[in-house]
Design a protein around this nucleic acid. Structure first.
Lengths: 239, 239
DNA sequence: TCTAATTGCGAACACTGTTCGCAATTAACG
DNA sequence: CGTTAATTGCGAACAGTGTTCGCAATTAGA
């Protein structure tokens, strides 16, 4: 009441607006979905207010009736795809080892980030607080409930789990044929490497590159990395 | 020779330009340093071509004589601060355990990212190829040389090491007093949490938040996280 | 001295996020 | 039923962005 400015974070509280007035022609959900589709197809940088507005057949300024800012739109997008997690309570069952349940969560996260390539870096920098993100966090914490970790350690373990997943996805992408969102394309990088390596300025790097890179099984690597990370996190001891 | 367009990635090859002509009033190094300073003070979003140009007393368009694009400037910034690593050969000595040497590297990385807060997310998304970045990579690989890992595993271990470090720094920042680069400020988030938690929609989260969060020793957590990650990476076996 | 190459940079273009003001629409109230 | 108040849609405008172009200024070598 006494606050001079409206609450800055009504993002997740703001209801879909009350009774009187012209009825809205769009919805926040459809806008976010359109934005996600654009990001999937053309990269995150293509997600501009004007393009999203055009995608749903609206004027640019109209979007601000549903979304407060561009940053908020991106936060909504992140929460949207966080809804793709399948939080099956069977995975959190008491019988299950926490490791397995968390590994499953990480697997899902990897798939989600691969479906939405733009999201991998963002999951790192943006600690989202939307309902889907909170549901995910809550689920991960419920799994960790069975361990003897301190609550702060639980929180960080959950956060680091998605962080490591995001890092892995980020690193596995260049090895794949897919799209090329790098500032400079990969072929140029390769040519550059070939030109700079013989300088024997980077002997260890040259040695590694010299070996024929056996086609890596990324799935197995992922399992191993997450598995060993969880093992190291000290979940083994039951409460 | 037959290439129609100039090589796209002369970023690191382009010499500081030959003999004849007006002598440059600036240098790529000074530009990058100015950009880093701006990012340190005002955040990465404040690093615009015009602001950097103004900082060194130049016209906006002049920057393009030293830097090909905004993206390239940021890549140069990343390589610049990668030069802050102290790659002491003593750490890579054969007697040292690889784990210790890599842990030291991660410690340095953490400090660098804390000095340049904007860099933590970027280290994730941008696989830089500048001389300093390559020197760092080469050093890490030379440490891993003593292990029995496959070369692809070596590469990914090195990449994941900085990735995990970046993730940790990203997660430890909100716990610190420092600057606030989040889309919405932390106090608002806290208020929101307080309002949404009693909904008992997130019981595990509520349970964790209820416990008094003992002031965490971030340094110790870092050591543990990196240590256990390296332990799981399978470095233990000597070659 | 002339020539060729290089830098500096104002001006412009195509974008971007965001705000403002106003017309159009709708629900509720008297 | 008419009036009022609230809400949406959105064209226009503003400030800021990355980038390109053309030209003047400067410099080294022929």
């Amino acid at each position: 009441m006494a606050m001079s400015s409206k609450d800055p974070i009504d993002i997740w509280l703001r209801a879909e607006q009350g009774s009187a007035g012209r009825k809205p022609e769009h919805s926040r959900a459809s806008i976010v979905q359109a934005a996600v589709k654009i990001a999937d197809d053309q990269g995150i940088e293509a997600v501009s207010i004007r393009k999203v507005a055009a995608a749903i057949g609206a004027g640019a300024a109209s979007l601000y009736r549903y979304v407060k800012s561009h940053d908020e739109l991106i936060e909504l997008m992140l929460d949207e795809i966080s809804g793709e997690y399948v939080l099956d309570p069977a995975n959190g069952a008491e019988g299950e080892a926490p490791q397995r349940a968390l590994l499953d969560l990480a697997r899902q996260g990897r798939q989600i980030m691969r479906r939405h390539l733009w999201s991998a870096p963002l999951f790192l920098s943006q600690p989202s607080m939307g309902p889907n993100s909170l549901a995910y966090l809550d689920f991960a914490l419920s799994i960790l409930q069975e361990t003897s970790l301190e609550s702060s350690a639980k929180l960080r373990t959950a956060a680091m789990l998605t962080a490591v997943t995001s890092a892995f996805v980020q690193n596995e992408l260049p090895l794949h044929p897919g799209a090329n969102h790098s500032p400079v394309d990969a072929s140029a990088r390769a040519a550059y490497m070939a030109q700079v390596l013989p300088t024997d300025a980077y002997p260890a790097l040259a040695a590694v590159m010299a070996e024929e890179l056996a086609p890596v099984n990324l799935d197995m690597e992922f399992e191993k990395i997450i598995g060993t990370y969880l093992q190291g996190a000290g979940l083994s001891e039951r409460k």
